[in-house]
Amino acid sequence: MRMPLTAAIGLVVTVTILAAAILAPWVAPYGQGQIVGVVWGERSPEFLLGTDNLGRDILSRLIWGAQTTLLIAGLATALAFTLGSILGFFAAVWGGWVDMGLSRMIDLLMSIPTLIFALVILSVVPSTIPLLIVVMGVLDSTRVFRLSRAVAADIAVMDYVEAARLRGEGRAWIVFREILPNALAPLVAELGLRFIFAVLFLSSLSFLGLGVQPPDADWGSMVRENREGIVFGVPAALLPAGAIAALAISVNLVADWALKRTASLRGARGV
């Protein structure tokens, strides 16, 4: 199956943003907090996207912001996957009261809207970057738990798992050597979607002023800093917001294609 045009565009945009984030010290024209021009300056050859509410170069800040955004969202997703899938697999393999207890706890966590719960926690802990990653990762691991438990429950009744059990392998062996390799495909397909969710979630928190704190900046806090300009017709806040949208759409396009591909490989009815 050839890669459709939309997925190719998505891949190019994602890779470009990723490269810009990694190479930020070399590709950004100015420093992150460097004041170089007038407040909300127009576009010019010197400042390709204009300047922001303090006179900093928007293009440079977008590139540095990409670094912060991708780092936090990426680590939060990694934490969510590690925690959620390991707990989910163990719940499925262990069964009984362990499964019951874990599942009910996850139900409870999921019965509060994620954003509201994050606000409750962030009202008492300081919004430092490591704490943001932990809060986002733990809250999002609930969804990974549900998926991986469902997937592992299907695999746990397979003959080869039964064989491993009868051989006398321990639970850790069964989880990591029997279930994990076979559950990887659906989990990887979910990875892209969870990553987008983390990016959007972080941006919302930062936009509300409760995520990344100055002088660090991510795209959400850039929207917040420049939002007053909108009413005067200064579109500076639209640029970081657009960057978030572009990243989310491209990752979504790639993930959608990957999902369809794995589905058609398994011979599912194409809908």
Binding site: I196, L200, S203, S204, F207, G220, V223, R227, I230, A237, L238, A241, G242, I244, A245, A248, I249, V251, N252, L253, D256
Partner: peptide
Amino acid sequence: LTAISLPEFFIGYL
């Protein structure tokens, strides 16, 4: 598929 990926504040400020 596109609209799902848009943050609320992007739509709002647009």
